[in-house]
Design a protein around this nucleic acid. Structure first.
Lengths: 285, 285
DNA sequence: ACACGTTACGGCAACCGTAAGGATT
DNA sequence: AATCCTTACGGTTGCCGTAACGTGT
């Protein structure tokens, strides 16, 4: 079985571009670095690194091995940190991490008995990291009930239809649902479950609502709407500032208050006395 | 950093239910097993296993650590097998493995520079094994274009409508497509893409063709058709013997020669000089 | 008494660092 | 000559297996 210390050294050589630098960085002698890499190569029966006076580089085999090496070290590190009651990695999908979570994190920081890191990324990335043990707990905009995880609804986050200030609807207190027929919404992050939401709140009208671009982030959507490129449906808290300062208008829909459930997700089989359990309990009060 | 050998031993203890059994299974002395587990526990600063005369069990911490351990060992094993140039595991979905592949494997055996194993299973099982690095190359009846794999069409395999010998169509050279309307085909393996095939070759007629049972294997379908339970659509080469010996009849459809594409699938990022690359090249000539 | 896991201990191999040795520029 | 990696070598450590030792049934 592969020796992880050697893999760590291998990665150091790759990242630092040479054996000497890797030695400095890992605290080993550079002779030990040579031995680590050589033994790793022997155990795999291939050369991983092209030795070179001007920067060592990966062989083809090294390139194939690299992702495995990174995965192993990541997972190993996380496993080591598992019972370290002093560390927590929180994952959040972009919108939540940017617009919703910060004040809660600030409150948590006061009561927390441990340090924590936050990783923000699109929904699929965070799910992947949750599965890869790179994050301990995730706050997400949807959950597909996959096996091995405990998900519970944290809170409902209000959604808002936003339009440019010069838009005909901009000065109306609210509009009837029918007006949305045939509209095209500017899309933000992919895979955030917008389709399902539209269906749920707008019923048959949803079929005639299109999503016209995938701008990748709510920030991009806000700018695009400001620029008059179209309208969109976003989390209310993401546009509080813009609405107050008059750069965007939030328009209500008569009789409907669309919202999005946010989920707290942990791996199943969690212990009581872990940082992630504390964080979950904190969020759910 | 965690020592993977100790993790392997830990898993052996968990799976075998005791230190002694784990020792037998891993080839270590049971003293060494004790040391491995103890050192692993020390490195994580928790107890993982409850020692017990009647079967050792996991502690709560052990249960939490278990998935990490499995993940690490799986990834490590995969990485080790990456450059093993003397081992090849070929996966094949049942029909292909049973009826199509054997003569090719025989030819390959003559030229092959490595030993190989064959794993036969239903389509989903083989995909799973491909993703888990349990098979290196797979021959499948469909492919859903998932990321990280290279798939190419190997060959087209003719399909045949089969009927019992006493069936009204049995003595006809061919039948018009329309006759299939309202028929029910006996289904074999699940998830073999029969629905798409019917649509492709039979067009609108396909909508009125049903699939009445899921018998699980082509062998079962053949027997069922022989017994007069219905008709079916199968790979021609699977019924050559039965048609020759008069136990089944293969009926042509006027103007249509249905077939099924077979795919050779490897992981992406493959090197040139691997057994699976050789096998793929061999199949594609 | 038996089956299980732990501890003690001696031999062996692995590993590390120092220092000298090639190779390339 | 300078920089890089490899090799040689000795001291230390860690690891394994044998065997003796607790412990619970």
């Amino acid at each position: 079985m592969i020796n992880l210390e050697r893999v760590v050294t291998f990665l150091a050589v790759v990242n630092r571009g040479g054996f000497r630098e890797a030695a400095k960085h890992t605290g080993l002698s550079q002779s030990a670095v040579t031995q680590h890499v050589r033994r790793l190569e022997e155990s795999l029966s291939v050369n991983l690194i092209v030795r070179n006076n001007a920067g060592s580089t990966l062989t083809e085999e090294g390139k194939v091995f690299l992702p495995y090496a990174e995965n192993l070290v990541r997972t190993g590190s996380r496993a080591c940190a598992l019972f370290d009651t002093n560390r927590l990695v929180i994952g959040a999908s972009s919108n939540i991490g940017i617009y919703v979570l910060p004040p809660h994190l600030r409150r948590f920081k006061k009561t927390a008995t441990c340090n924590f890191d936050v990783v923000i990324g699109d929904n699929l990335t965070i799910v992947k990291k949750l599965e890869n043990f790179e994050v301990d707990v995730a706050i997400m905009e949807w959950w597909d009930q996959r096996e091995g995880f405990d998900a519970c609804v944290w809170r409902s986050e209000a959604l808002a239809v936003i339009v440019p200030v010069e838009h005909p609807w901009a000065k109306l207190a609210s509009i009837p649902l029918d007006w949305l027929k045939g509209e095209k919404l500017l899309g933000g992050e992919t895979s955030s479950g917008t389709g399902r939401l539209l269906q749920h709140f707008f019923g048959s009208v949803a079929d005639s609502i299109g999503v016209s671009m995938q701008l990748g982030s709510t920030e991009a959507v806000k700018r695009a709407v400001q620029a008059g490129l179209g309208i969109s449906l976003v989390i209310s808290s993401s546009v509080v500032d813009e609405c107050e300062s008059g750069r965007l208008r939030s328009v209500k829909i008569e009789g409907i208050t669309p919202y999005k459930n946010l989920y707290v997700i942990c791996r199943g089989n969690m212990l009581e006395n872990t940082p992630s359990a504390h964080f979950k309990k904190f969020l759910l009060q």
